[in-house]
Computed example of a mutant assay.
Amino acid sequence: MYDEASSLFEIDDPAPSPNVLAPLPIKTEQIQAIRDAFENAGVVSQDDRKALIESVVVREVASIRELKAVDARRILQRIEGLRSAKPTGTGSAWDNREEDTWIDKL
């Protein structure tokens, strides 16, 4: 009654997996964009840059050229987040406060 040749799941003889394309290497333009973003964000230390990149890609990276093209967008978003999170340097702490105080409400 059971015919091994017509097995429903073919557990013993799995079909070959489809060819999965490897991620593309990072492009020169992407490398320059990352460097420019670091410069604009004020991240100048190589150690700080390396730590930020490794925190995004969740692996050790010895060189920026080891990155993949898909990593660049996430890295740029993280750097942009740093830049927008920095407080502006104009005015005093009083001028830069986030909420109104009782004095403001008078």
Score class of each variant (00 low, 15 high):
Gly42Val: 01
Gln30Glu: 15
Gln77Met: 15
Thr101Pro: 01
Asp47Asn: 04
Ala37Ile: 01
Ala15Thr: 03
Ile26Glu: 08
Val43Gly: 02
Thr101Asn: 05
Asn96Pro: 00
Asp71Ala: 07
Pro14Ala: 01
Ala69Lys: 14
Pro14Asn: 02
Ile103Asn: 05
Lys50Met: 04
Val44Ser: 11
Val43Met: 08
Arg78Asn: 04
Ala41Arg: 00
Leu82Pro: 03
Asp104Ile: 07
Pro14Met: 04
Leu106Arg: 02
Ile31Cys: 03
Leu24Phe: 04
Ser92His: 06
Pro18Asn: 07
Asp36Asn: 14
Leu21Asn: 08
Ala62Ile: 03
Ile79Asn: 07
Ile64Phe: 07
Ala85Glu: 13
Ser92Pro: 10
Arg49Leu: 00
Thr28His: 10
Glu66Leu: 06
Trp94Gln: 14
Asn96Val: 03
Thr90Glu: 15
Arg83Thr: 12
Ala62Val: 07
Arg78Gly: 02
Arg74His: 12
Leu67Asn: 03
Arg59Lys: 08
Lys27Phe: 02
Arg74Phe: 12
Lys68Cys: 10
Ala69Glu: 14
Thr28Pro: 04
Arg97Gly: 02
Ser84Asp: 15
Val61Pro: 04
Asn96Gly: 05
Ser84Met: 15
Glu60Trp: 02
Met1Thr: 05
Arg74Trp: 09
Lys27Ala: 13
Glu29Thr: 15
Trp102Lys: 01
Ser6Asp: 08
Asp3Pro: 00
Asp100Gln: 06
Ser6Arg: 09
Pro14His: 01
Ala41Glu: 02
Ile26Tyr: 06
Glu10Ile: 09
Asp13Arg: 02
Arg74Thr: 10
Glu4Thr: 06
Gly89His: 13
Val56Gln: 01
Ile103Leu: 12
Asp100Leu: 14
Asp48Gly: 00
Arg78Ser: 11
Glu39Met: 10
Gly42Phe: 01
Ala93Thr: 12
Pro23Trp: 03
Leu82Ser: 07
Asp12Pro: 00
Pro25Thr: 06
Asn96Trp: 00
Val20Met: 03
Leu67Cys: 06
Pro25Arg: 07
Leu76His: 06
Ile103Glu: 13
Ala5Trp: 10
Glu99Tyr: 14
Phe38Asn: 06
Glu99Trp: 12
Asp3Met: 06
Pro14Trp: 02
Glu39Ser: 12
Arg83Ser: 14
Lys68Ala: 11
Ser17Gly: 01
Ala62Cys: 02
Gly91Asp: 07
Gln77His: 13
Glu66Trp: 05
Trp94Cys: 04
Ser7Pro: 00
Val43Pro: 02
Leu76Phe: 08
Ala51Trp: 01
Ile103Gly: 03
Ser7Cys: 09
Pro14Val: 03
Asp36Ala: 15
Gly81Lys: 09
Val20Gly: 00
Glu29Phe: 10
Ala33Gly: 07
Pro18Val: 10
Ile64Ser: 11
Lys105Cys: 08
Ile103His: 05
Pro16Asn: 04
Glu80Gly: 12
Phe38Pro: 03
Leu76Ile: 13
Lys86His: 12
Arg83Cys: 09
Gly89Met: 15
Ile64Met: 13
Ile79Val: 07
Ile26Met: 08
Thr101Lys: 03
Arg65His: 10
Asp71Cys: 05
Ala85Trp: 08
Leu24Met: 12
Leu67Met: 06
Ser55Phe: 02
